[in-house]
Amino acid sequence: MNATLFAASRVSALILAVAVAVHLVVIIHAVQQGLTIGAILSRTHGNWAFLVLYGCFVLAAAVHAPIGLRTVLAEWFSWSGPLADWLLLAFGVLLAVLGLRAALAVFLA
């Protein structure tokens, strides 16, 4: 792994640590308050803080997961090289598109 990928992996992990913590706290809070889907969506609709948080969450995951998978594929299956890198890049883009689409859908709902 080169130093740039390593830095990207560590910085994205840092963002994920914060985002996952906030995500879990909000879920627990919502469940304990007994909020309905409608009540939740009314809070997230047009909420820029929500969109920025989950946008960062999704992008960090889209960066972090392919880098980790790249190591797993290389170490466990001895598979590396340009084809693996391109497929992992595509996987990262897929994660980003699906995740941002979901976050945007909740933001606009």
């Binding site: 130093a3 740039t4 390593f6 830095a7 560590r10």
Partner: peptide, 14 residues
């Protein structure tokens, strides 16, 4: 080594 290599990468020295 990881720290120094990351600093160097962020500083663009390698």
């Amino acid at each position: 080594l990881k720290r120094q290599a990351m600093r160097a990468a962020l500083a663009g020295t390698r």
